[in-house]
């Protein structure tokens, strides 16, 4: 990296140094609150409010034990919640991305009268704020379809016309059609072209979307709260904890829970970005 830096022109060196400093400042401004949240998680509640910005008098790592044991929804422990979160996040993301990818691909690459309408409808549904649909939705999911279980709930995520659709549609439009045409000439079916030629090329987009989708589902507490009462997720646990701590003030324990809940997704992202960024670049090109 240093070597590469030496090769640059003076102007570039200046720009890079400047950007590096800028990035560092920004990174610090992002990290600082988390470091502070971690330090706060080791205090007592009174100490937390006494000097909001001091080191803990005693480093109460026992707070984490407390959080772990107190962090419960009915009979589900934190581990159970993590399990539920993992299932919902990955299967939900998988379903969401696959369905969006299919619709986006068709709309982008098979233009006919229907696709234009679909695109417009997708935009329309994003603009219109929906109010007061909770009763209808709840009745449908719980009473009519009885989808209020960890498998059925995936149907809620299998939407093909939201944010994922719009982004993937953009990607698919720019995906080269020449490989596909070659495939068709060779007699490949539409199905094969999609799975074998297009999807690998779209992998960077799929991965980006999957990451965002994962985070969205991981942090969503409303769906599990409404439909998965017996399978609470971590986000729901945090949400409940947040309300509890407004009555029984215990901010440090709350921060413990937050930090414990961030860790899995942070670790996942760190692992992912390495493998994914590199593999997708290569994979996308090799086709």
């Amino acid at each position: 990296m240093i070597k590469a830096f030496k090769k640059l022109t003076l102007a570039q060196k200046i720009v890079f140094t400047f950007v590096f400093i800028l990035f560092s400042v920004y990174a610090i401004s992002i990290i600082a609150p988390f470091v502070w949240a971690f330090l706060s998680s080791l205090k007592t509640d009174d100490e937390y409010y006494e000097k909001v910005f001091a080191l803990p008098k005693q480093w109460l790592f026992s707070n984490y034990v407390t959080a772990f044991t107190e962090f419960k929804i009915k009979k589900t422990s934190m581990l159970g919640m993590i399990g539920n979160s993992l299932w919902l996040t990955f299967s939900g993301t998988f379903v969401a991305v696959m369905v969006s990818s299919a619709t986006a691909y068709i709309v982008a690459k098979y233009p006919f009268w229907g696709t234009k309408i679909i695109y417009r409808v997708a935009i329309f549904t994003m603009i219109i704020p929906i109010v007061g649909n909770l009763p209808a939705m709840y009745k449908l999911v719980v009473a009519d379809l009885q989808f209020n279980n960890p498998i059925g709930i995936l149907a809620l995520y299998a939407g093909g016309f939201g944010f994922n659709f719009i982004i993937l549609h953009g990607f698919y439009r720019s995906v080269s059609w020449s490989y596909a045409e070659a495939g068709f000439v060779d007699g490949a079916t539409d199905w094969k072209v999609y799975w074998r030629i297009i999807l690998p090329q779209a992998l960077p987009a799929i991965v980006s979307i999957s990451i965002l989708s994962c985070i969205g589902i991981w942090n969503d507490y409303m769906t599990p709260f409404l439909y998965l009462k017996d399978h609470p997720t971590l986000a729901l646990g945090i949400y409940q904890f947040d309300i509890i701590q407004t009555y029984r003030s215990n901010v440090p324990i709350y921060y413990c829970a937050i930090i414990m809940s961030i860790l899995p997704i942070l670790i996942l992202f760190c692992c992912f970005q390495e493998t994914i960024m590199e593999n997708t670049v290569a994979g996308g090109l090799k086709g």
Partner: peptide, 19 residues
């Protein structure tokens, strides 16, 4: 390819939000 997305849309968007 469109079926899942469209059925999901009809059930969970149109039916639920029409009101």
């Amino acid at each position: 390819m469109l079926s899942v997305g469209i059925i999901q849309f009809l059930v969970f968007w149109v039916y639920v939000n029409f009101n």
